[in-house]
Simulated scan of single mutants.
Amino acid sequence: MSHTYIIIDDNQDDVTKTQIIAERFRNLSFVASANSYDEGVNLILEHQPHLVFLEIDPSDKKSNLALSLINELYRYLSVVPKIIITTSKKDMAYEALKYEVVDYLLKPLDINDFRKAILKFDRAIKSDLPHMELKNPVATFEVLDETMTEAPETAEHDVELKSIPVSAEMPIVEQKQQSLIICIKSYGDYRYIDSNDVLYFEADNNSTDIHLNNGEMITAFKTLKHFETVLPQTQFLRIHNSYIINVDQVSRIHTGNTVCYIKNSTTKLPFSKSYKDNVDLIITRIAGGNYLEI
């Protein structure tokens, strides 16, 4: 059985390089690639691959690629694909581990590190099997014992195939749309917030005030930059050095006065020129829904 995978990377050359290495493993089957956050999420929801290679520090910041993409998947999928991070930045490894990624690979990708990551992926998949309802409990899974150090088109080495019993079919996943639950943890106190109840995030030095639709404000001891990194950008976008807004809570945007209005309130938040692209994105997303313009 082949395990399907998707590559999400803003650099198309890196997509190709990752695919070339992955093709040397016969248990992996390429499905598609994406160069941006939204495109990547949509492809994953459409194909529901077993594995995703994900860049989290893109050169093209407009691609919005980040670890928050993983959070977004949990809103829709009961079984989220395994994730292998592929990036050039070393100092995000610890943060990535919090998202329970399979592995963290540094570019340029090394075949030995890649092989170890695929073995970890294989082990992670097998550890999930007892918890799945399987239509056919046993099949043959081919793992390529890869010893090549050259590109596949020039290498002339023999490979050995080993058979390992695993499931013949992955379970059909029923997609259920659910909101993200944000947990604010402080000294053993776990405060759970439904993302749909958040109006906006406001910077306060090294902490962030979270404003809710019931009028309550909760302080989290994380910077606004941290929230910008981890929040799903399909729901939350930064519009100012001091504000991240919930797109679903926007009732009005006045581009002349450079302000966004919050639903069911008199609150209006300024947006700055440096985040004008995000404001344009909000306008586009609202227009892309059930929309009538008069």
Rank of each mutant, 00 (worst) to 15 (best):
V15W: 02
M170S: 04
T266F: 06
N257P: 02
G289D: 08
Y243H: 11
D60N: 15
D248L: 08
I118C: 05
G289C: 04
N205L: 06
E156R: 15
L45I: 05
E160L: 15
I218K: 04
S33T: 06
I210F: 08
E228M: 05
Y5P: 13
L77Y: 01
E146R: 14
I70T: 04
F30S: 02
S265A: 04
P58Q: 09
Q175D: 04
L144I: 13
S127D: 15
L97E: 05
S274E: 08
I210Y: 05
L67V: 03
C183N: 11
S2K: 14
V41F: 10
K162T: 14
R26L: 11
A287M: 06
L73M: 12
V247C: 13
Q177V: 11
V15G: 11
V230Q: 08
R115V: 06
I8G: 12
Y5C: 10
K268E: 15
N35G: 15
F141N: 01
F236S: 05
D194T: 11
S163W: 02
Y99C: 12
N241V: 13
H240N: 12
T219I: 14
D197R: 07
E160S: 12
T154K: 07
V41H: 04
K89E: 03
L119W: 03
G289P: 07
T223V: 12
L109P: 06
L54G: 12
L106I: 15
Q178P: 00
